[in-house]
Design a protein around this nucleic acid. Structure first.
Lengths: 183, 183
DNA sequence: CCTTGCATGTAATGGGTTACATGATTTA
DNA sequence: TAAATCATGTAACCCATTACATGCAAGG
């Protein structure tokens, strides 16, 4: 149940936000951390309100509802941070394909890995560029946002290097071993 | 819909398997790639059969059903491998917590990262030990299984190093800057 | 006045997790 | 004969995705 804490966490950090505000945050700052659709956000706001963890603090134009965390909500966020230990995701579509790459011709398998390496390289460069562009403030979201961005950069870099290594491994296996052949 | 292709892929590679066989494979060889519960496996076998991608090739003791891929099934696996491009997961519970770590006292936040680094180090070492122990064959699952295992090792290594870096960053911010103080 | 953006909600469908439920075979 | 293992299946519930549906407000 992490969506709940993502929504709650943003409301606490921003000290009040509407569903619409949250959607934008999910699209931008949480994009590489936790995704959510519009209908999930509004649904979760309703549930959090029903459970007394947030409340409507103000209503604005166009039916805008500004939510703020209650004391119970802040307690719950803290409890989640301290007590609950997340288990890393155990599902990866890219790796799943690699697992079955033996079903393709070796050349196609290698092409898949080359392709993957290129994509990962682009994403790494994209995040690296972001790191250069953004001017970071002294607030919490800046500091911790910077940490997660660096994580993303390292993640893509790792994947790129791994894909290149894997491609080379396949090449090594595809080619007849030449070592013993000649001095 | 990747579970479908995970099940189908295993049946193709093994050239026949029961639901029970598949469960064990999900627990062991696919553990770091794609997880599935027992009820998912049996449910998916029923759907794949209904769609004509696999069929019951033999029945054994205790109601055991050995499934084998049909031609349509092999075609579908290939199509999935070649045509469909997976998008990397965009959800990570560990990172989500880091994003909100500003809600804790700095010392607690740093403890969380130190803890995380230790856990990741253990998991990295566990996979490294596995790599040493296992004697690899020349078959496809060995070759490609070795690639995904190495991915896992690099993944945990990256996370460990990142957590250590992040912890140091927090320390840097928590401590008053001493640089300008003295020569 | 028309377009863009702000703003919220619901319904249908599918996938995933947990728990329940049952029974046959092998091995100690 | 008792325990472990093999073996399959169903039901309830929750979470996520996609699509549908509506309407106000501000700016050009």
């Amino acid at each position: 149940m992490s969506l709940r804490h993502a929504v709650l966490g943003l409301i606490v950090e921003l000290d009040g936000a509407s569903g619409y505000d949250l959607m934008k945050l999910f699209e931008i700052s949480l994009a590489n951390v936790w995704t959510a659709t519009q209908s999930q956000v509004y649904g979760e706001l309703a549930k959090l309100t029903a459970d007394g963890l947030i409340e409507v603090a103000a209503e604005g134009p166009r039916g805008r509802k500004e939510y703020r965390a209650t004391d119970a909500g802040r307690d719950e966020l803290r409890r989640w941070l301290v007590e609950e230990q997340p288990r890393p995701a155990r599902r990866d579509g890219v790796l799943l394909k690699v697992f079955f790459l033996g079903q393709l011709e070796p050349e196609r398998a290698r092409a898949y890995l080359r392709d993957s390496a290129a994509t990962m390289g682009e994403r790494r460069d994209g995040l690296a560029a972001l790191q250069q562009e953004v001017t970071w403030g002294d607030d919490n979201l800046s500091l911790y946002g910077r940490l997660t961005l660096e994580y993303g950069r390292r993640f893509f870099a790792m994947r790129k290097e791994w894909a290149e290594w894997a491609e080379a491994e396949l090449a090594r296996h595809a080619a007849p071993p030449e070592d013993a052949d000649r001095a």
